[in-house]
């Protein structure tokens, strides 16, 4: 799929950056003239993925998070969130709704379930001790002026 436009930002895994991450992804996607609902879905999914990096990947440490947003032909958006943190031992278990390793922090265990239901596709690659890459895909509804 041909890339039309792309941006990358790198930031530290501080919880204050969760809002920076979702806002910058949404600001970049805004050029496609998405609906309010689509933009809200993207904001929410990015927030979940970045929170996972802050809470789990870099638990008790500060590391770098890379957010890459790619706009492809046909109004398709790919968003990649990458960390070099602890990695996930069992990805399918981590993706189960309500599964959490941080109940004391009131984590609901819904992060991946939200990403899956708010986006069209979610892919997770992880290597223990090396990090995790989450790739989110959303196909935006074509706008009238594109047809």
């Amino acid at each position: 799929m041909n890339t039309v436009n792309e941006m990358t930002v790198v930031f530290e895994s501080r919880s204050v950056n969760e809002s920076f991450a979702r806002s910058s992804a949404a600001a970049f996607v805004a050029q496609l003239d998405p609906t309010v609902g689509e933009l809200n879905d993207i904001r929410t999914a990015v927030s979940e993925a970045v929170t996972n990096c802050v809470v789990h990947a870099y638990k008790n440490t500060i590391g770098k998070i890379t957010l890459n947003v790619r706009i492809c032909e046909g109004n398709v958006v790919f968003i990649r969130i990458r960390d070099k943190g602890c990695g996930i031992e069992n990805i399918s278990q981590a993706m189960e709704p309500l599964y959490t390793t941080s109940p004391e922090d009131e984590r609901a265990g819904l992060g991946f379930a939200v990403m899956q239901s708010f986006m069209d596709d979610v892919k997770v690659r992880s290597s223990v001790g090396k990090g995790t890459t989450v790739t989110l895909m959303k196909r935006l509804i074509p706008r009238l002026n594109d047809v």
């Binding site: 929410t44 979940e48 929170t51 819904l110």
Partner: peptide
């Protein structure tokens, strides 16, 4: 204006 699953944790708690 915005809420992710942290809001669910907040309600359930």
């Amino acid at each position: 204006h915005f809420m992710d699953s942290s809001g669910i944790g907040l309600i359930m708690g």
